[in-house]
Design a protein around this nucleic acid. Structure first.
Length: 111
DNA sequence: CTTCTAACA
DNA sequence: TGTTAGTA
């Protein structure tokens, strides 16, 4: 009954995606090389992008235009994914009315 | 005709 | 980063 997610379906080639977004194929391939966004591959090793990946591509394109390096973009996407994880982990956490204790400044950053 | 990798400017 | 040669 779960209308299978056609948003995750790997359907589009680099060429299609590149012209859809008005970017160059080389750019998309570089994102793949740098681990920013790696689409799934066919058995013949050809890239196939899903609609979700294309959306993320739009976002990545913006960040790069704003001057972000690919390494920076990769880190940003990692952190944003991490934030989502924590957000819905929080959402599922049993409601407690306790006052959250704030960790000391020094300990709060750097994994 | 399209994509792929690798290499060069 | 964009382009291109040589393939598959």
């Amino acid at each position: 009954m779960l209308a299978i997610d056609d948003d995750h379906a790997p359907l589009y080639t680099v060429g299609q995606v590149a012209s859809m977004l008005g970017v160059q194929q080389a750019f998309l391939r570089r994102l793949d090389e740098h681990g920013v966004l790696s689409p799934s591959r066919t058995e013949g090793r050809q890239r196939r992008y899903s609609r979700l990946e294309i959306q993320r591509l739009q976002y990545v394109h913006d960040l790069v235009e704003q001057g972000m390096t690919l390494a920076a973009v990769r880190k940003i996407l990692e952190l944003e994914d991490r934030v989502r994880e924590l957000e819905d982990a929080l959402k599922r956490m049993p409601k407690t009315r306790k006052r959250a204790s704030v960790p000391p400044l020094d300990e709060r950053f750097i994994p």
